[in-house]
Amino acid sequence: MAENIDATDWSILTELQRDGRIPLTELGRRVSLSASATTERVKRLETAGVITGYRAEVDLVKAGFPILAVVRLKYPGSQHQPLHRLLDERHEFLECLRTTGDDCYVLKATATSMAHLEQLIDELAQFGSTTTNLVYSQPLPYRGPQAPS
């Protein structure tokens, strides 16, 4: 599908990443399309799996999770399902990337307190060694992909 994404599709994707709740008529106005043409393109992008969902951005501190950490996990085992089950059960793990290099996984975790974070890390430690970094700030929040240059 990537080769079929044109400049108008990228404009639509950019606008939807800024505001996933934008009315289709307003989206069409911003990308210079009729509402029906915009609707058709959005549905095509959804059907092709380019658009995978819509979600709200939540301020973690205001939601009661003032601690954000990046956790690296060295996982020596070959059975990853027990770890995947833990990640599914514990909603404090916001993101998980399987990576190359010394660490097998890089996770983003949030916690209500340092004791809470310690409990999460203890649960992860059953799968391998961990390295935890606390996040001071996020100068570049997730912004989604943009059209290739």
Rank of each mutant, 00 (worst) to 15 (best):
M1C: 04
I5D: 07
D6I: 05
D9E: 02
D9S: 01
S11E: 10
S11T: 15
L13I: 03
T14N: 07
T14H: 12
Q17M: 11
Q17R: 08
D19G: 00
D19L: 10
D19K: 02
G20I: 11
P23E: 14
L24P: 10
E26T: 12
L27G: 02
L27S: 05
G28T: 00
R29C: 11
R30G: 04
R30I: 10
L33Q: 14
S34C: 11
A37P: 05
A37C: 09
A37S: 14
A37D: 09
A37H: 06
E40T: 08
R41E: 00
K43Y: 07
L45M: 02
L45E: 10
E46I: 07
E46V: 14
T47C: 14
A48R: 07
I51A: 03
T52N: 04
G53Y: 12
G53D: 11
Y54G: 02
E57R: 13
V58P: 01
D59F: 06
G64L: 08
F65V: 07
F65N: 00
I67Q: 03
I67R: 13
I67V: 06
I67K: 02
V70T: 10
V70Q: 13
V71D: 06
V71S: 09
R72S: 11
L73N: 09
K74L: 15
K74W: 15
P76L: 14
P76F: 14
G77H: 12
S78A: 10
S78K: 11
Q79V: 09
H80S: 14
P82Y: 03
R85C: 12
L87R: 05
L87N: 09
E89K: 10
R90P: 05
H91E: 11
E92L: 08
L94N: 06
L94R: 07
E95M: 11
E95K: 11
T100M: 13
D102M: 12
D103M: 13
C104E: 13
C104A: 13
Y105K: 06
L107F: 03
K108H: 12
A109L: 00
T110C: 05
T110N: 01
A111M: 04
A111H: 02
S113T: 01
A115L: 08
E118Q: 03
I121Q: 00
L124Q: 04
A125W: 07
A125K: 15
Q126M: 11
Q126H: 03
F127S: 02
T131Q: 13
N133E: 07
N133K: 10
Q138G: 07
P139K: 00
P139M: 03
L140N: 00
R143E: 11
P145R: 01
P145V: 01
S149T: 13
S149Q: 10
S149H: 03
